[in-house]
Measured scan of single mutants.
Amino acid sequence: TTFVALYDYESRTETDLSFKKGERLQIVNNTEGDWWLAHSLSTGQTGYIPSNYVAPS
C-alpha cells in the first residue's frame, strides 16, 4: 500500500525513517500499532514512521 506524507518528520532514533511532506512511502508492515515500517520511494531507505503523519495516496 502506498501512502503520502502529510508533514515533515525527522527521525528520533536510528530505526525511524525521516521524510518530507509529499513524499511517497510504501508500507511494509502496519501491524505495530501507531508506528509502521515503511520504505521511502524517494530515498530507498526503510524505517519506522508515525502512522498519523501519512495518508493513503
Score class of each variant (00 low, 15 high):
6 L>P: 04
23 E>L: 00
46 T>S: 10
51 S>T: 09
44 G>A: 09
37 L>N: 03
10 E>V: 08
42 S>N: 14
3 F>S: 03
8 D>R: 02
41 L>E: 12
1 T>D: 08
12 R>A: 11
14 E>I: 10
17 L>R: 01
53 Y>S: 13
56 P>R: 07
9 Y>M: 02
42 S>K: 12
44 G>E: 15
10 E>W: 06
16 D>W: 04
7 Y>G: 09
39 H>F: 08
5 A>W: 00
21 K>Q: 12
49 I>R: 00
51 S>P: 11
48 Y>F: 03
39 H>R: 12
2 T>I: 15
10 E>C: 11
49 I>P: 01
44 G>M: 14
40 S>Q: 15
16 D>A: 09
46 T>Y: 15
25 L>F: 13
13 T>D: 06
6 L>Q: 07
11 S>W: 00
5 A>V: 08
42 S>I: 13
5 A>T: 10
29 N>Q: 14
24 R>C: 09
33 G>R: 12
48 Y>V: 07
22 G>C: 01
25 L>M: 15
16 D>C: 12
38 A>F: 01
31 T>V: 15
48 Y>A: 12
26 Q>D: 13
42 S>E: 11
34 D>G: 06
13 T>V: 10
33 G>Y: 15
40 S>A: 07
17 L>V: 07
50 P>T: 00
48 Y>S: 03
38 A>K: 00
44 G>N: 05
16 D>S: 13
46 T>G: 05
14 E>D: 14
9 Y>S: 02
42 S>Y: 05
41 L>Q: 09
28 V>F: 08
36 W>R: 05
10 E>K: 08
36 W>V: 09
45 Q>S: 06
36 W>D: 02
43 T>P: 01
9 Y>F: 05
29 N>H: 09
40 S>F: 01
8 D>L: 00
9 Y>T: 05
48 Y>K: 08
10 E>A: 09
44 G>K: 14
12 R>F: 04
29 N>G: 15
42 S>C: 14
45 Q>F: 06
31 T>D: 09
10 E>G: 05
18 S>E: 06
54 V>T: 04
11 S>D: 00
35 W>E: 06
50 P>H: 11
42 S>L: 12
44 G>Y: 04
54 V>F: 04
31 T>Y: 12
7 Y>W: 08
17 L>P: 06
35 W>F: 12
4 V>H: 03
44 G>L: 10
25 L>C: 03
28 V>L: 14
30 N>H: 14
4 V>F: 11
40 S>V: 05
45 Q>H: 07
53 Y>L: 13
13 T>N: 13
53 Y>I: 07
45 Q>D: 07
18 S>V: 02
8 D>T: 05
15 T>F: 06
5 A>C: 10
6 L>S: 07
38 A>L: 00
6 L>W: 06
52 N>I: 06
36 W>A: 09
42 S>P: 03
20 K>L: 12
28 V>M: 09
40 S>Y: 00
52 N>P: 04
27 I>V: 13
56 P>D: 03
27 I>W: 00
33 G>I: 04
2 T>P: 02
6 L>E: 08
29 N>I: 05
